Structure formats: C-alpha cells, structure tokens
Amino acid sequence: MKAAIDQRELWGHLGWQDVKQRYRRSTIGPLWITISMAVTAAALGGLYSQLFDQPIGTFMPYVTVGFMIWYFISACVLEGTETFIANEGLIRFLPAPLMIYVFRTVWRQVLFFAHNLVVYVIVLAIFFPELTRPYQMVHNGVMHPGLGWSALFAIPAFVLIVINGLWVTLLFGIIATRFRDIPPVVSSFMQLFFTMTPIIWTTDLLKGGRAGSPRSIVDFVAKLNPFYHFIEIFRAPLVGQVQSWTHWAVCGVITVVGWALALIALRNYRSRVAYWV
C-alpha cells in the first residue's frame, strides 16, 4: 500500500492519460462527460418531477447529485472488476505493486466526477432560492431545512466513498481476475440496484405507510441497500436535506469490513494475479 502511494506520480499520470485517451481526436474532449451528465439530469429530472408531482426547483438538484455520485460508485464497481484484466500488459512486465492499478482506476473516476461536479454548480446557481429555504419533497412529507453550512459534510462523505471505492476495486478486481464470469454478473446486479436505490425517486414518498403495507416494506428494503446509505451521506448535505447519522454508521461498518476482506485477499492472492491475467 505505502509503495503504491509513494508512486502516485505514476498512477496519477496513467489515470489522466486514460481520460485523455478516451476522448482522443474529440473537439471538446472530456467536456463530453459534463454534457452527458447535464442531459441525463435535465431529462430525467424534468420527467420524474412531473410524474411524481414534485417541484422541479428541489427535485432537479436531488436527481443531479444522485446521478453524480451513483456514476462514481457504479464505475468503481464495474471497472473495478476489470482493473487487473485491463492492465494485463503492465502487470506482466512492470514490477509494481498491484495497488497502483487500483489507484489508477479510482483516480480516473475521481477525474470524471470532477467534470460532473460542474453540472451541480450550474443547477445550484439556477435553483439556489428554492434550495436555501425549508422545503418538502412531497406534500405533507418531511420538512427539510434547506441548504446551509452543513453542505460541507459532503467533503468527508466523498472521501469516505473514495476509500470504499479503493477496497471495492481491489477485492472485485482480484475475484474477477480469477473468475471471468464475475464482471457480467456484477453488471446485471448493478442495473438491479439502480432501480432499487433512491436516485430518481425519494424515500419521502414511502413515509407514513402502515406497518406491513407495501410502502413500509419498500422503505425497509431501501434501508437494507448499502448504496442508499453512501448516496445519502453525500447527497443530503448538498441539497439541504435532513441527514441521519445512521447512514454514517452503516457506511463506517461497511468500510471496515470491506477493507478487511480486501487486505486478506491481497495478502493471499497478490502473487497469483500475474498468472490469472
């Protein structure tokens, strides 16, 4: 781990080259990342605000931030399964720690996230008055305090998400290198988790259901979804919503358990990855 951190110039350069290579010969280059994010947020935010009968001034930022952090998390999971396979040539001929390729993958996603962050700034500028006063996402729902200094909690939240992205990339990368059926299986499950995670819908819609009712069951299932907690610790501060410390507790437990599993896998199988690729 320390050796990989010391070689940050190497994985930092490789990650930046990945971004440049993806948009090589493109006129506007990586700005396509921002444009794609803006179109997705505008289209789905506008559509679902009408379907759910929610004010667009608060729903659009909600959807935008949800997509931003979901893209980062899902990319760490999906590209994490390919991280060692995609670096086969370097692994075979470059005597470097495996963590370099993990850092490279996650750093690339951080760069993509930075481009998407521009979309949030634009949306915030447009809907700033609606977000800075108390509001409800649904009629007779939870009253959210509005945007304030608590938005700074998004910084440690993103750091925690990046830390989790590292162990996910490491653990899934090792497993997927040994078992090549893992990437398509993970991809299928991520599509399922996308629909189950409150990204384009809000859990405020589920409040007030009687015990045993479909709404209360869906609310309970949503809270079992680990992606929900990671999204909430980042999104809630940026859209001025009430944030439960339960989300931080769940994310903390997942971080500790995840890193323990990843380090065990690294200790036991690091020497075999070069043969598996």
Rank of each mutant, 00 (worst) to 15 (best):
G212Y: 06
K20I: 10
P184D: 00
I200C: 00
V102Q: 12
V65L: 07
I163E: 06
G258R: 01
E9G: 12
A236P: 05
T197G: 01
Y48Q: 04
C76H: 08
I199L: 06
V106N: 09
Q50K: 02
R270T: 08
V162Q: 09
L261H: 00
I231T: 15
C251H: 04
M99Q: 11
I217K: 06
V65A: 03
W32A: 09
L51F: 04
L124I: 07
R178E: 05
F127Q: 12
M60T: 01
Q21A: 15
T246D: 11
I122F: 11
H115T: 03
I217W: 11
D18W: 07
T255W: 09
R25S: 15
L206V: 03
Q109N: 15
Y62I: 02
M143K: 01
A236K: 05
V168F: 13
Q50R: 06
G173H: 02
V110A: 04
I163A: 14
A236S: 10
W248E: 01
A154E: 06
F72T: 00
L44S: 14
L147I: 06
G29P: 05
M1T: 15
N87G: 10
S36K: 10
H144G: 02
R180Y: 03
E79M: 05
A41Q: 06
F230Q: 15
N164Q: 13
A114N: 03
W167R: 07
F84H: 02
L47A: 08
M37Q: 12
W32E: 10
T83H: 04
F72G: 00
A38M: 08
L160K: 09
W201L: 02
A222V: 15
L94W: 11
L170A: 04
V123E: 02
L224N: 04
T83V: 14
I200D: 02
L160F: 11
L31N: 12
V123M: 05
T203N: 10
G212N: 07
F220D: 14
P55E: 10
T255M: 10
D181I: 01
M137Q: 07
M143P: 07
V221Q: 04
L14Q: 15
S216I: 06
F84C: 05
L44D: 07
M137E: 01
G45Q: 00
R25V: 12
P97A: 11
A260K: 13
F193V: 14
E82F: 09
L152Q: 04
W276R: 01
F172C: 14
I182Y: 11
T202D: 07
